[in-house]
Nucleic acid binder design. Sequence first.
DNA 1: GCGTAATCTAATCAACT
DNA 2: AGTTGATTAGATTACGC
Length: 204
Amino acid sequence: MAEDTYSHKMVKTNHRRCRTKFTEEQLKILINTFNQKPYPGYATKQKLALEINTEESRIQIWFQNRRARHGFQKRPEAETLESSQSQGQDQPGVEFPSREARRCRTTYSASQLHTLIKAFMKNPYPGIDSREELAKEIGVPESRVQIWFQNRRSRLLLQRKREPVASLEQEEQGKIPEGLQGAEDTQNGTNFTSDSHFSEARTW
DNA sequence: GCGTAATCTAATCAACT
DNA sequence: AGTTGATTAGATTACGC
């Protein structure tokens, strides 16, 4: 409820989530797990989260960054010797542990979607505290809200690319955020001084 | 089967040391 | 300045209905 907790300095409000600082012990466990399976499923990540007392979403990010920056065995299989059968494809018998299950798909109710969409039209790039507030409001984890915004932006940008000028109708009735990185001609080579993406200075 | 949540890569921003 | 967590666009995968 909008308490007036704002202190003098503010608040850096809407922006990124605070940078997580993993302890050595946490890192040890993370790295150890990574070396065994660089693509952990939901269950594994959940277990890890519990074990090192961190949110599962932070673990997800950590694995993404780790994969991007450090080499890793792409083949979890590839042990010392592959089962002498080279071509044994027709053997459903033991399915190799190809992939662990992902997180269960969340289904949003109509009212939840309404809330999300409304927020999206106001600001398609919500900061951490906006996301948390939203999450609390509709009763889902903040990480789900973040993913929802990602997917929503993606869809909208894709749609706009396909139909250059078609969202006018929607703009009439609703709002459709216009600051969604409109692929403008920002490509003037030698410019961009300290200009961060786009002005985020919009009502908040 | 479709719509879209979840996962992923690549690039980038940015906090911390 | 290098390391690394966080965010983004965008492509892909795979569930729930």
